[in-house]
C-alpha cells in the first residue's frame, strides 16, 4: 500500500516535504484547484514524489458547461505536466436554488441518477482521463443508496471510486449503512482516503468528517479487517488532514496506517518470544 498525504495550501508545503524526505509518505495528493494559478512546472518541481489530484470546487454537477469547459482546459495542462496517479472529484451538492451551502449536502442518488450519470460521463470526457468519485460522509438517509450509486455509476460511465474509508464509517454511524455494503466498491478500486472525524457539538451526536484529529478506532479497525481487500498492487491510501496540522500527530497516524499495511503479515503477527 502506498501511503500519501493531502496538500491543500502553500503554508504546509514544508511539512509535506519533510514527510516525503523522511519517507513517511510515498506520494502526495494535491487539492489541485487551489493551485490553478501556480505554473504546472513549478508545482511539479515542489514534490519529489508521485502526486494524485483531488478536485474540490469544480462543482461539476451544478456549474454551467462553459465554466466547466474552461476549467477542464486548465486542469488538463496540470494533468499533462504532473501525470497524476489519479484524478478525483466530489459527488455533492454545493448549492441549493442558487445559494451556496457551506456544509455540503449529499445528492439523492436514485432520484437524480440519470442527470448525475450524464454529468459524470461528460466531466470525465472534459478532463480527458478516467475520473474517480469520492463517497460522501453521509449524515441523512441519502447515504443508504450510496453503495448502490457508486457501483452503478462505475458500470455506466467507467468512472472509478476514490473510496474514503472514514466517510463510510461516518455513514455507518449516522445512517446505518453497514460497511459490508461497500465490499464491491472496495474490490473495484485501488484508491482510498482516510481521515479523522469528530462528533457534532449538539446531541444526538452525529459524526462529521472533520479531518482535524487522529483516526477513529473504528476506522482503523475497518482498514485492519479489510486489509487484504484494500492492499493490492498499485493501491494508494491518502491520509487527509486539513485542520490541527501537527507534524508528530500526523506521523503517528501515518505510522498506524503503515503498521496495518506492512507488507509482511508474518512480522505483523510475530510474537515476542
Amino acid at each position: 500500500m502506498r501511503i500519501g498525504f493531502n496538500f491543500t495550501l502553500g503554508p504546509t508545503l514544508e511539512l509535506v516535504q519533510q514527510l516525503i524526505a523522511e519517507r513517511h509518505i510515498d506520494y502526495c495528493e494535491l487539492l489541485i484547484d487551489n493551485f490553478l494559478q501556480v505554473p504546472p512546472a513549478e508545482l511539479a518541481a515542489a514534490f519529489d514524489c508521485p502526486v494524485g489530484f483531488h478536485i474540490m470546487f469544480s462543482k461539476f454537477l451544478e456549474n454551467d458547461e462553459a465554466t466547466l469547459v474552461e476549467m477542464a482546459a486548465r486542469l488538463r495542462r496540470y494533468i499533462e505536466v504532473l501525470r497524476p496517479i489519479y484524478v478525483s472529484d466530489h459527488v455533492a451538492r454545493f448549492t441549493h436554488e442558487g445559494r451556496q451551502l457551506y456544509h455540503l449536502a449529499e445528492p439523492e442518488y436514485r432520484r437524480d441518477y440519470e442527470a448525475m450519470r450524464a454529468r459524470v460521463a461528460w466531466w470525465q470526457e472534459q478532463l480527458g482521463q478516467r475520473l474517480l468519485l469520492e463517497n460522501y460522509p453521509s449524515i441523512m438517509d441519502n447515504g443508504r443508496d450510496a453503495p448502490w450509486f457508486f457501483q452503478q455509476i462505475a458500470r455506466d460511465t467507467g468512472a472509478g471510486v476514490l473510496f474514503d474509508a472514514s466517510n463510510a464509517v461516518c455513514g455507518q454511524r449516522n445512517c446505518g449503512v453497514d460497511l459490508t455494503e461497500w465490499e464491491p466498491v472496495i474490490d473495484a478500486t485501488n484508491h482510498f482516503h482516510v481521515g479523522g472525524y469528530n462528533a457534532s457539538i449538539l446531541a444526538p451526536t452525529i459524526t462529521l468528517d472533520t479531518h482535524d484529529r487522529a483516526l477513529g478506532a473504528d476506522t482503523l479497525a475497518f482498514l485492519e479487517r479489510y486489509r487484504d481487500r484494500f492492499d493490492r498492487p498499485g493501491a494508494t491510501l491518502t491520509y487527509e488532514r486539513d485542520d490541527q496540522i501537527e507534524y508528530d500527530a500526523i506521523v503517528q497516524d501515518l505510522s498506524a496506517l503503515r503498521q496495518i499495511f506492512t507488507p509482511t503479515p508474518e512480522l505483523r503477527h510475530a510474537r515476542i518470544a
Binding site: Y102, M140, S200, I201, L202, A203
Partner: peptide, 16 residues
C-alpha cells in the same frame, strides 16, 4: 430538537 435533522441543520448554520 432530539433529531438528527436538527443537529444537521445546526452544523450547517454553524458553518455560516
Amino acid at each position: 430538537r432530539d433529531s438528527r435533522a436538527f443537529v444537521r441543520l445546526d452544523t450547517s448554520l454553524r458553518a455560516y
